[in-house]
Design a protein around this nucleic acid. Sequence first.
DNA 1: ACTCATACTTACACAACTGTTAGTATCCTA
DNA 2: TAGGATACTAACAGTTGTGTAAGTATGAGT
Lengths: 118, 118
Amino acid sequence: MSKIKENSTHQANKNSLGEICTEVYAINLLSGQWTLAICCHLFEGRLRFGELKKRIPQITERMLTLQLRKMEEDGLVTRTVYPEVPPRVEYELTESAHELKAVFQQLEAWGDRHKARL
Amino acid sequence: MSKIKENSTHQANKNSLGEICTEVYAINLLSGQWTLAICCHLFEGRLRFGELKKRIPQITERMLTLQLRKMEEDGLVTRTVYPEVPPRVEYELTESAHELKAVFQQLEAWGDRHKARL
DNA sequence: ACTCATACTTACACAACTGTTAGTATCCTA
DNA sequence: TAGGATACTAACAGTTGTGTAAGTATGAGT
């Protein structure tokens, strides 16, 4: 999120696992603390920065910015800036990200079952 | 992994999101760096500590221990100790964890498609 | 001239996660 | 008596992720 040292052992392991194993690659894209929450709210349509903030009250502006930037880099959202004042910026899920909906449903179903067993 | 401060804002946010949203709960169980790798190797059957180590050459003994302990806590693996010398300890996926196989396949399929689009 | 709204950015501190190195107990074998 | 095998554990340091608080630019409205 801040700067990453590409030459650290930690990062090297993460990268090589992600290259070998596509599940790891996918999980790495989704493991930011707020990533899923943002996705869920954007499933229903594009939203402005401020609207997202309202819907996820606990998130700070800083984290929202950082997560959205990373999601943009990872090809999960698109960012549209309207040259107005005050500024207006809208975020929308990419096609790829919309296809996550099915994965999330399965994950949710598994989670429910797992919780019930404990 | 080490001690967690239950009263930190970070942890509080993580917990509350996990309680509200089952997908987040599930992702939290799977987001350890080596969790998926361990799962994949255990899908085929129970393995000893040393066998896991051999199959995941980059992992250190420390991390393997920590991850397995967390997975045990989370209800993903069972640990069986045989009172022998030298010690023998076997790890096996729980039923719940075995059901993750389907989720992983979907995740992998999504990851492949997503990679292809970038 | 002053405030307001929006979408950020910056600097700092802390928390969580991971890696490195060295050590432990026990019995068996040579 | 010494060394090997196994599954750890402890102490420490580094890297990454997250939270807090404050500030920025711009033009419209008062």
